[in-house]
Amino acid sequence: MALEDIPLLGCGRHIDQLWATLHQPPTTHEQQCEQCKMARTSLQRLSEATRSLREQDLNDPALKPRPGITNAIMDVARAEIRRSKRIILGSTEEGTTEISEQALSALIRLAATAIPGVHSRRCHIEVRSSDPSPAGEDPRSRGTADAGPHLIINLRVAAAAGIDIPRTVQTLRQEISSAIPAGAGIRAEIINITVEDLYDV
């Protein structure tokens, strides 16, 4: 159907075919056929003009949006920032302490930058208190020796193509499990790391 839509030259050739072989020497037919010769010349001019327009637009300072546009967009993003989940770390009558999931994610991402070959992606964190289980708590979590709450971290990462994934993931896990107590003062009980993608280096 679409092929019928492609403009035909009088000699029966598709413009598309000429375009695809533009940078190859003309075939015997194309050397002899006046229509093909003309079409090739005009398509070659188009190809050259396309290339230089592309180059020029890319470097033309006038073809950039006004500088304030980033701020305008970021102002909206900031104003509409998704309210990050808050994780309650402890609550007594002297007050409640909570931490935003975003603060913990940033800590985890920062830790991950120390490990070559992985890029951290989405991060979800849950908290498990070591008190006798509140409603909905997995009963298996009871009886942990450590006092205070601890975290369950679900981190997704992209790994550099060609690295030793198990070893890198293990190093990353160690890095996170020391960064969380150091920066947040909480224990990271479970660190689930999912390699969801590979990136080229």
Partner: peptide, 14 residues
Amino acid sequence: DEGSVVARAQDGDL
């Protein structure tokens, strides 16, 4: 890599 940038932005990373 761009995929990782996008994923972080999805998490609300400004």
